[in-house]
Amino acid sequence: MYTTVNEDGIINNYASEPKVYYAEYPAIWEQRKYVLQGLFATLIVTSLVLVSFSVS
């Protein structure tokens, strides 16, 4: 951790910064996984909305 002390004796701590890297484009199987996750999420939200309308 990087630490500095000013003329009044106050300590200032700096967090260590992580290495920066570029994200890679997802592979075709990862894209399919994201589509399936989106479909399941849409199904759950839609069913919750329909249940809430039917109960009220």
Results as ranks from 00 to 15, higher is better:
Y2S: 10
T3P: 00
T4K: 12
T4W: 03
V5T: 11
V5Q: 07
D8M: 15
G9R: 06
G9Q: 00
I10R: 11
I10Q: 12
I11T: 11
I11S: 04
I11L: 14
N12V: 14
N12E: 12
N12C: 14
N13W: 09
N13P: 01
N13R: 12
N13Q: 11
Y14P: 02
A15G: 02
A15C: 06
A15L: 14
S16H: 12
S16I: 06
S16K: 11
S16W: 07
E17N: 09
E17G: 01
P18A: 01
Y21D: 06
Y21T: 06
Y22G: 08
Y22Q: 13
E24K: 10
E24P: 00
E24R: 15
Y25D: 03
Y25L: 15
Y25K: 13
P26G: 03
A27Q: 14
A27N: 10
I28T: 05
W29I: 10
E30A: 07
R32Q: 15
K33A: 11
K33H: 01
Y34W: 14
Q37T: 08
G38M: 15
L39G: 00
F40L: 05
F40T: 06
F40G: 05
F40W: 11
A41Y: 04
A41C: 05
T42V: 09
L43Y: 08
I44C: 05
I44A: 07
T46H: 02
S47T: 12
S47G: 06
L48V: 05
V49Q: 00
V49S: 02
V49G: 02
L50E: 06
V51T: 08
V51R: 10
S52C: 10
S52F: 09
F53R: 06
V55G: 03
S56G: 13
S56T: 10
S56K: 10
